[in-house]
């Protein structure tokens, strides 16, 4: 795991990556199909296959435990991969360290990226860049708020 400054407390790292969503307002049959698909994706064989062929972590505790028991993480070529899980689960997630769900999140993330690039290339101070990212993010959230006016989000 990356070191942290002395005097700082280490937290769990933020989860990211792809996610699957089931939208509301569909028929019963469609939901049954979606449920079957999610079951398939979460089955142990599938969950174990993904980390084996990619660098992703297993997405269920059961699969993780099973992989530990069968010695996956001590096999040459895979050793050390448990570090990602250690990092993600270092502390129980709090308000600031759990996964992010925001309206137009991808827009906000790209603003953040651009502002961080500006900071890294010395065009702005880090503080300025972060302040700007916040301002841009808020604007995007306001537009999202207006677009979704009158809607209850689950």
């Amino acid at each position: 795991m990356l070191p942290v400054y002395e005097g700082f407390q280490r937290h769990n790292s933020l989860v990211g990556g792809a996610s699957l969503w089931v939208m509301q307002g569909k028929s019963r049959g469609e939901y049954q199909a979606a449920a079957a698909f999610l079951d398939y994706v979460a089955s142990r064989a599938e969950v174990e296959w993904m980390p084996t062929v990619t660098g992703y972590i297993p997405i269920t505790n059961a699969a993780f435990r099973h992989m530990q028991e069968t010695g996956f993480y001590s096999r040459p070529g895979f050793a050390g991969r448990e570090t990602a899980i250690t990092s993600l689960t270092f502390t129980p997630p709090n308000e600031n360290t759990r996964g992010i769900r925001l309206g137009n999140f991808t827009s906000i993330r790209s603003e953040l990226t651009s502002e961080m690039q500006a900071a890294y290339t010395g065009q702005k101070s880090v503080q300025q860049a972060l302040d700007d990212a916040v301002a841009r993010g808020n604007q995007i959230l306001r537009r999202f708020e207006q677009t979704m006016r009158g809607r209850q989000l689950p």
Partner: peptide, 9 residues
């Protein structure tokens, strides 16, 4: 492109 298809605006 990035506002429309990535940012979904």
């Amino acid at each position: 492109y990035s506002d429309g298809f990535k940012g979904k605006d």
